[in-house]
Nucleic acid binder design. Structure first.
Length: 340
DNA sequence: TCTAATAACCGCCACC
DNA sequence: CGGGTGGCGGTTATTA
């Protein structure tokens, strides 16, 4: 994996289009990857960090999530244009019980075999599963389809509570808008937290809606169901640098520790400390990219306390070391962001 | 890398 | 009753 490339080469993404593709989800990777590295407020439109190609046979029918044919699409690239890309994205399809076209499955298998990253949105996970790419892996899909996925593909560990699952080279995301979160996550992996934050701002998205679709499953009537954790989450984000304990958080939320844990599980799909560690990692990434602080100092300011703890969590969640991360993302400016 | 101490997590269940 | 709460204690994860 070219994770350590210093000069931020343009990466290529193929978005597959076939019949009954959900139009909205087809557009998600086009917009997110299309926005990366570009300045929405600049005098001219610069070129982006991704070369995004919509690939597929011509004259496909796009649907909304309910299967209504909403418009026709003519992909500008044939499927063969996906042969050499770094990343292949499979949007959701309606009527996912029907088998995906064999050429698509074949394309995915070969792309995966040559080391490309494969990502799905929503029911696109069924296509990945049909290609055998999810065997033995954790994966997610739209919560309403999760049971079907688990039943149809017993070898896939389906987690209906999260927004997306990252298995390094195979990613799946939950329904519809969760594709935005996954694509931003990929941008962060490829180009760092700062570029990802710029991208999120550009498309008017929060950088990370933490936690999962659990919050969307459990509360069909949000009026009566006061989630109430939001202020606590914000408070935690503001206080990541402090050594917070469960007792501290529970006190702020005015809940018992037991109920706090329960609410996080139900509404966020995570635990308080796991969520906090995520926030701390984001802070650390930001500091590593935008400052030249020592790792010890970064650790202190991101709430890990010691460089040892920071390195541990970095290795586990980011897959590299703080200094290697900085080497990859700090110094160089994106090649496409030319000043004039 | 190992190890001990500490904290977090979560099933269980009595209790609003 | 039905639904939520929170203390207890054992297991798991994190820290020193």
């Amino acid at each position: 994996m070219p994770f350590f490339d210093r000069f931020w080469p343009v990466r290529s993404v193929a978005v597959l289009a076939f019949d009954r593709v959900i139009g909205f989800e087809l557009g998600i990777p086009c917009e997110v990857f299309g926005a990366a590295g570009r300045r929405a407020d600049g005098p001219e439109i610069s070129s982006g960090l991704y070369d995004v190609r919509v690939c597929g046979p011509s004259h496909r029918l796009a649907t909304n999530a309910w299967g209504d044919h909403v418009f026709g699409i003519t992909p500008p690239h044939p499927l063969t244009a996906a042969e050499d890309v770094d990343t292949v994205v499979v949007p959701g399809v309606t009527g996912y019980q029907e088998p995906a076209p064999e050429p698509i499955l074949d394309l995915l298998r070969r792309a995966h075999a040559r080391g490309a990253r494969i990502a799905s949105v929503c029911t696109g996970a069924f296509v990945l599963a049909a290609a055998g790419l999810l065997d033995g892996l954790r994966a997610t899909t739209h919560w309403a389809a999760a049971e079907d996925l688990a039943r149809s593909y017993p070898r896939v560990r389906v987690d209906p509570a999260v927004l997306y699952v990252d298995n390094d080279n195979v990613l799946t995301s939950a329904g519809m808008a969760a594709g935005l979160d996954m694509c931003l996550h990929i941008v962060r992996h490829d180009y760092g937290a700062t570029v990802a934050a710029d991208t999120a701002r550009s498309i008017v998205m929060p950088l990370e809606r933490d936690g999962g679709q659990a919050q969307f499953i459990a509360h069909p009537d949000p009026i009566g169901a006061d989630t109430g954790l939001q202020p606590t989450l914000l408070w935690m984000q503001d206080n990541v640098a402090r050594p917070l304990t469960l007792v501290d958080i529970a006190r702020h939320a005015q809940l018992s520790v037991r109920t706090l844990n329960r609410r996080f599980r139900e509404q966020i799909g995570s635990t308080p400390m796991q969520w906090l560690i995520r926030q701390r990692l984001h802070r650390a990434q930001q500091l590593l990219e935008t400052t030249s602080m020592s790792v010890e100092e970064v650790a202190r300011r991101s709430g890990f306390g010691t460089a040892i703890a920071l390195r541990q969590h970095f290795a586990r969640h980011i897959g590299t070391s703080p200094l290697a991360y900085r080497r990859a993302f700090q110094t160089p400016r994106p090649v496409s962001r030319t000043s004039h």
